[in-house]
Every structure is written in C-alpha cells, then in structure tokens.
Amino acid sequence: MSTTTHQQNAVRIERVVTSGDFRLDGGCWHVDNNVWIVGNDDEVVVIDAAHTAEPIIEAVGGRDVAAVICTHGHNDHITVAPQLAHELHAPVLLHPADDMLWSASHGEERYVTLHDDQDITAGGVTLTVLHTPGHSPGSVCLYAEQLDAVFSGDTLFSGGPGATGRSYSDFPTIIESIRTRLLTLPAATVVHTGHGEDTQIGEEAPYLEEWITRGQ
C-alpha cells in the first residue's frame, strides 16, 4: 500500500494494490488493481472493491466509510463489494448500466445506483460522478476538483484508453467519453487509474487523435 502523506486530518488519497483474476467472455487474466481510499482521519470512500477484502479493510483502519464506489462492473473491480458493504457498514454504489456484469458476479445482491453528475461527499472531499461509457456501459470516473484529481477506473490509463475488445465495450464510445468528460478537465488534473501508474490529463490529451487512428 502506498499513502500520500498530509497533515493530520487533512483530506488525502491512499492506494491499496490487490491481485487476482479478471474473467470475461470465457477468458481469465491475472491482474493487479488499484483500490483508492479518499477522505480524512474520520471518514472515507473506497473506490473499487478488487479481489481481497482484508488489505482494504486494514487500510480503512476503522474510519467511517460513506460508500464503496465501483467504477464499473467487471469482476475484478467488484469482487468483494458485498463483503466490504457488510464489514464496513457502507452502501455499494454502481451505475445501473453495468447491472448485467454485477449480476454475473453477485447474482441477486443489491447495490445503490449511481447517476451522472451526482456528488458524493465524505471526509471533507466531494467526488463528482462522470458517466464515461465505452469500457463498459456503466463505467464512471470520479472527479475531486479540490484535489486536482480524477479516479478513472478503466476508462483512461497512462498511454491511452481502456480496453474495448470484449463484450459490452465500444471503442468510439470510450473515445467520446474521454474527449468530452475527461480531456475537458484542467491539464494538471492527476489521473488515478484502475491499474498501473498515475498520469495527468495534460500528458494524455495530445495523443487523442493518435489513439483514434490506432483504434480504427
């Protein structure tokens, strides 16, 4: 786990990395996932519920959890969402366009629906939901303006857009989401991704046309 250090009770971003399998369309890939914890010493939100609950719960460290927010419904991002909901006494939030993916992993377990432009406030920070379909129909990013940060799930990575070669994904749709919802953010905005290392909006924006050409 890596932690961004700030003064006591200031809003901060913490990262937990968990490992496991991503399964879709009959395939299986071993992946490392970033789980983001955002808030202060009193209250946080957890972004994504990947693979293993214990390190996430340990990182929360007894703080109140306002919500477990899932950036999308692929199994590696929602693996332990019901377990975290139970053990952390927090609702799970997911965009309803990914209900079929959720149901494939968790059957009749329920979640609270996210909607575009919704604000979620916890621990002194507000996260604004940006619906960014393409990687999946219900993919969202979470923009924390006061932190100059966006949590992009699998929509945008260092080096380009998330994968679109599997069921329920679409390349032109993800490009339009990135163009209209992410590249319009300030260039200095740090992109905290669902896998791998951070980037910045200003580092990725110049390559949009190259991505489009590459994806055609």
Rank of each mutant, 00 (worst) to 15 (best):
M1F: 11
S2A: 08
S2I: 11
T3F: 15
T4H: 12
H6I: 15
H6G: 11
A10K: 13
A10G: 15
V11D: 05
I13R: 04
T18S: 08
S19C: 13
G20E: 08
R23A: 14
R23Q: 12
D25K: 05
C28K: 14
C28D: 07
H30N: 15
D32R: 14
N33G: 12
N34F: 05
V38N: 00
E43C: 10
V44F: 01
V45A: 04
D48G: 05
A49Q: 06
H51G: 00
T52P: 03
A53S: 12
I57H: 02
I57W: 05
E58N: 01
V60M: 00
G62E: 00
R63V: 05
R63T: 03
V65A: 03
A66R: 14
A66H: 12
A67H: 08
I69F: 02
H72Q: 10
H72E: 10
H72D: 11
G73K: 02
H74W: 06
H74C: 05
N75D: 06
I78F: 04
I78W: 00
T79F: 01
V80T: 05
A81R: 02
A81E: 06
Q83A: 07
Q83R: 08
A85G: 08
E87I: 03
E87H: 11
E87D: 11
L88N: 13
A90Y: 08
P91V: 13
L93V: 06
H95F: 01
H95D: 12
A97Q: 12
W102Y: 03
S105G: 10
G107N: 09
E108T: 15
R110W: 01
V112D: 15
V112S: 15
T113N: 10
L114T: 01
L114V: 12
Q118Y: 02
T121Y: 11
T121A: 14
V125W: 00
T128F: 00
V129D: 06
H131S: 10
T132H: 09
T132F: 07
H135D: 11
S136T: 15
P137I: 10
V140D: 04
V140A: 09
V140K: 03
Y143Q: 06
L147T: 07
F151Q: 07
S152T: 14
S152G: 01
G153V: 04
G153E: 05
T155N: 09
T155Q: 09
L156D: 07
L156F: 09
G160V: 00
G160K: 04
G160W: 02
P161I: 02
G165T: 00
G165D: 09
S167Y: 04
Y168C: 08
S169P: 01
F171N: 07
P172E: 07
I174F: 07
E176S: 14
I178N: 02
I178Q: 06
R181S: 07
L182S: 08
L182G: 06
L185V: 02
P186N: 03
P186T: 10
A188N: 13
A188L: 12
V190Q: 09
V191R: 10
G194A: 04
H195T: 10
D198E: 13
T199E: 09
Q200N: 13
I201R: 09
I201G: 03
E204G: 02
A205I: 13
Y207C: 11
L208G: 10
E210A: 15
I212H: 08
T213I: 13
G215A: 15
G215L: 12
G215F: 05
